[in-house]
Every structure is written in structure tokens, then in C-alpha cells.
């Protein structure tokens, strides 16, 4: 056997994607939650300048991809990036780098610290082999869902349950006017709350000029079984007001179910396994450890009709 020129362990860690050209690879660097320090950014720029083609690509899942890296330079690239802090991102049938919006810190809409959750998931679950297919996790700070959490295998959205201090209310009617869901109506100069219509967005809390509304509880709305690609699915509801600190355990429980139920199914995403096994099985599995948060019932992942192939095509 010829002398090995590169350390294959680096390759196995994932993040190296074969390009069209001879010997050329894309190196995908993980950026959990889409946030990185300026120092790291500068370091990446330096390495990209030296080993790449003068540009990088920002992946739709917030990774930075170095383009046109020669495989002979793998070890040098990994060494110069400093592998411990700059772990290369994964490909294949593994838990991928979680994505997240920057919500809470600077966006007034953010209800929850998505960045903290993304880092936690990255630290504890990134790269876990699923045995079947890729597994994507995403955190959105509120029901606006800018980062599209519900098309991930597990998608989280920050949520708040509003509660009124009637004495602090000056009856301006702004909250009722702002509630897009029609969950608030003014009666005798005070807002009346209809819990059946509330989507936990917190707009009422934000708009109230006197602070009469506040969050009685806070947590994540969790949807499972989404994906995009050729056959898109939108994930459906499994839990409400899941506490932030239980997100990692919740994902691990979903993974355990997936690993077991997809046995022998080959490269099949979680959503398709739920469609095959029925959502009741996953609900029951999750209820064991997350009883107070798992919903009573749900529906299978929602199939998006993308209209190709065209019907009746000869």
C-alpha cells in the first residue's frame, strides 16, 4: 500500500465534499446558529485565501464553505483552522449543525435565546450517527419562523403564554388591534383573551404601552418530521412550552425513536418514517419523559404538493 499522505480521520469527521474538478473538495465549516466571532471569521478568510479560490460560499444552513480546496491540503487546512475550535461540519447520515435566527438579543421579536439552544445542541449532539439519513434541527425565536424551523426533522419556535394584569391596563385597545389571530377583543375597556385562538406570539406583550401583559410561561413549540428537497414535508406539532433546558434531551428522545423505527429502511428521513409508523407511536414514546409538554394528538407530516411530474405527460 502506498504511503498515506493525508490523515483519514479528518475526512471521516465529515465536512469534505467532492467537487467536479480533479482532486478538489469543498470544506464545510460549521457555524452553529449562524454566529461566529470576528476573530474566527478572519482566520477562516486567511485559510480560504491561502488554500481556496478567493471566495467562500455561505450555505443555506449557515455554514461557511471553502471552495476548490485540493485534497493534498486537507491536513494543513484543518491544522491552520485549529481543529478543536473549528470542527468541520458534517455531511451524511448524522445530526447536522443546528441553525437558528439571531432573535433574542437584538431583534425585539425574539422570545427565547435561540443562540444558546443551538450551541447546546451543537455541543451535545452534533455529528451523532442516525444510522439512516441526515437529521436537521433549527431554532426560531418566535412563531414568525424566519429560519423555517418546521421544515427540519425537529424544529423549535419560541413561545409565550400571555397573562393580563387588569389594574395596569389603561384600555387603549392596542393589544386587541395588534393580535393578528383574533384572540383578543375589547369589552368594557379591557381586553378579553380567547385561549383557543392564541398562537403564543407575544405581540400583545410587546405592544402594551403599560406592561399590563406579561409572560406567564415561556418555552418551545416543537414540530417534528419536516424536510425540504425533492419531496417536501412540513413538520407537525408534538410539544408546547417545552422548557429551553430540555431541548437537547427531547431531540435525543426523537433520535432514539428514529434509530429504532427506521431499522432496515435504508436512507429514509424521519418524516417518512412517521408517515409509515403513524404519529401515535412517536407521541407515546415522547410522552414517557415529557408528559407535561407533549400534545394529546397530532397529524402526520404535511405533504407539500410540488406539482412535478406533470399529470398526463406522455
Amino acid at each position: 500500500m502506498a504511503e498515506q499522505k493525508i490523515d483519514l480521520r479528518n475526512l471521516k469527521a465529515g465536512g469534505f465534499i467532492k467537487e467536479r474538478g480533479k482532486d478538489l473538495f469543498t470544506v464545510r465549516l460549521r457555524v452553529p446558529g449562524g454566529r461566529l466571532s470576528v476573530d474566527r471569521l478572519a482566520k477562516i478568510a486567511e485559510v480560504a485565501q491561502k488554500y481556496g479560490k478567493g471566495y467562500v460560499h455561505l450555505s443555506v444552513r449557515q455554514s461557511i464553505e471553502l471552495i476548490n480546496v485540493n485534497f493534498a491540503d486537507f491536513d494543513a487546512v484543518v491544522a491552520e483552522l485549529g481543529e478543536e475550535q473549528q470542527k468541520v461540519a458534517s455531511c451524511g447520515a448524522r445530526v447536522r449543525v443546528p441553525t437558528a435566527c439571531g432573535g433574542c438579543e437584538y431583534n425585539p421579536n425574539g422570545l427565547i435565546d435561540t443562540q444558546k439552544s443551538a450551541l447546546e445542541v451543537d455541543e451535545k449532539l452534533f455529528g451523532t450517527a442516525t444510522g439512516h439519513h441526515k437529521f436537521k434541527v433549527c431554532f426560531a425565536g418566535c412563531p414568525f419562523d424566519c429560519p423555517k424551523s418546521s421544515i427540519n426533522d425537529v424544529g423549535f419556535q419560541g413561545a409565550v403564554w400571555p397573562s393580563l394584569d387588569a389594574d395596569a391596563c389603561i384600555g387603549c385597545g392596542l393589544c386587541a388591534k395588534s393580535c393578528t389571530e383574533g384572540a383578543l377583543a375589547m369589552a368594557d375597556g379591557k381586553p378579553v383573551f380567547d385561549a383557543q385562538k392564541c398562537i403564543y406570539c407575544g405581540d400583545c406583550i410587546k405592544v402594551c404601552p403599560t406592561g399590563a401583559w406579561s409572560a406567564a410561561k415561556k418555552g418551545y413549540t416543537v414540530r417534528i418530521g419536516g424536510k425540504w428537497g425533492r419531496r417536501p414535508l412540513v413538520g407537525t406539532l408534538y410539544a408546547t412550552f417545552l422548557p429551553e433546558e430540555r431541548a437537547v434531551d427531547f431531540i435525543a428522545a426523537v433520535l432514539a425513536w428514529y434509530q429504532e423505527k427506521a431499522e432496515g429502511a435504508g436512507r429514509v428521513r424521519l418524516g417518512d418514517i412517521i408517515i409509515r409508523e403513524g404519529c401515535q407511536s412517536l407521541l407515546d414514546h415522547l410522552r414517557r419523559d415529557f408528559a407535561g409538554f407533549v400534545v394529546a394528538e397530532t397529524v402526520p407530516p404535511q405533504v407539500i404538493v410540488n406539482q412535478i411530474p406533470l399529470p398526463g405527460q406522455a
Binding site: 389603561i170 387603549c172 392596542l174 410587546k206 405592544v207 402594551c208 404601552p209 403599560t210 406592561g211
Partner: peptide, 14 residues
């Protein structure tokens, strides 16, 4: 109104 309240003023009516 909300921003003015955050600045420490008292809202009497709207």
C-alpha cells in the same frame, strides 16, 4: 408609547 415608558415616563392614557 412603549419606548417612552421604557425611558421612565408614566403613561396616563392612550
Amino acid at each position: 408609547p412603549r419606548s417612552l415608558k421604557d425611558e421612565g415616563h408614566k403613561l396616563l392614557g392612550l
